[in-house]
Amino acid sequence: MNYLSFRADGRDRFGIACDHGVIDLSGRTGFASLRDMIARGGAGEAEAGATSLPADFAYDDIEYRVPVPDADKIICVGVNYPDRNAEYKDGSDLPKYPSLFLRTRGSFVGHGQALHLPPESAQFDYEGEIVLVIGKVGRRIPEAAALDHVFGLTLCNEGSVRDWMRHGKFNVTQGKNFEASGSIGPWVVPLQRAGALGELELSTFVNGELRQQDSAGRMMFPFSRLISYISTFTALLPGDLIVTGTPTGSGARFDPPRFLTSGDVVRVSVPGIGTLENRVVEEGVSTC
């Protein structure tokens, strides 16, 4: 059983994704949201109560949301695969510390929702990544205990607007936070069901063409190290999302670059976690 947040019959809900459809937990439990369930350690209770229940909704009848739409923090990791460091062609040694930045909730949509191609740029790019969903509060977490603070894993297309990432001298915030430019989902797989973490194989496809592929075991900063480092300066809270970095092969690294255009379909997949898929559409321009 995997956990998701979704919209159906005009209401925002959360529940369990199973073989026969989606079981709605929002009306059956005392938890207000998936984040609330995670924070209160309610996964066991929720699953026990759902084992014999029929599905409330078919997958075609729901609109996927970001699995934890009310996350307190979305922390993203920059260069985290050795080939990515080499892409910069600056002769630099491998980094001693991870590069980090924050993203807003509004910059992400759920599985199956449209990614917005902004009119301000022709350099809209894709980045397939694995996401850690924090399960319990922690500050200055030792690496040896780091995975005890993880509830589960999900996937991300950490969409980027490349030229806007270079507007500032010391940050990438602008290019990483266009509304609906990235996606997270489709659901959260509990940590104990995700398999061997170092063997997770991440693949990103654009219109069915394989563009990125690598193993989590090759990360320069593995999951435990990221959790320990990040929790040194900020308390990690239940439902926080850590987007752990993308392999080589994003559109900007081709010669010439291969940026996304309207109609493109981006698919991020990891066996044992699932597949996240979104179509790119032109963003309507608002004058408000």
Rank of each mutant, 00 (worst) to 15 (best):
C156K: 04
C156N: 10
C156H: 02
C156Y: 00
E158Y: 06
E158F: 09
G159Q: 04
G159H: 03
G159V: 01
S160H: 00
S160E: 08
S160G: 07
S160Q: 10
V161E: 09
R162G: 06
R162D: 04
D163Q: 08
D163N: 14
W164H: 14
M165L: 12
R166H: 11
R166K: 15
R166I: 06
H167T: 14
H167Q: 11
G168C: 14
G168E: 15
G168I: 07
K169H: 09
F170L: 13
N171I: 03
N171T: 13
N171C: 08
V172H: 07
V172W: 11
T173R: 07
T173H: 12
Q174E: 10
Q174T: 14
G175A: 03
G175E: 10
G175H: 08
G175F: 05
G175Q: 06
K176D: 10
K176I: 03
K176C: 07
K176H: 10
K176S: 10
N177D: 10
F178K: 08
F178L: 05
E179Y: 09
E179I: 12
E179C: 03
A180R: 12
A180I: 00
S181T: 11
S181E: 05
S181P: 04
S181N: 06
S181R: 04
G182D: 07
G182W: 02
G182P: 03
G182C: 02
S183F: 02
S183Q: 06
S183C: 11
S183N: 03
S183L: 05
S183E: 08
I184M: 08
I184A: 04
I184K: 06
G185S: 09
G185K: 09
P186R: 07
W187A: 03
W187S: 02
W187P: 00
W187N: 03
V188D: 03
V189A: 00
V189E: 08
V189Q: 01
V189M: 12
V189L: 01
P190Q: 01
L191K: 09
L191D: 06
L191A: 06
L191P: 06
Q192H: 14
Q192D: 13
R193P: 00
R193E: 12
R193Y: 08
R193H: 13
R193T: 14
A194T: 12
A194R: 08
G195D: 02
G195Q: 02
L197Q: 11
G198L: 08
E199L: 10
E199N: 13
E199P: 01
E199A: 14
E199T: 14
E199C: 06
L200F: 04
E201S: 14
E201W: 05
E201K: 11
L202P: 09
L202W: 04
L202V: 10
S203I: 09
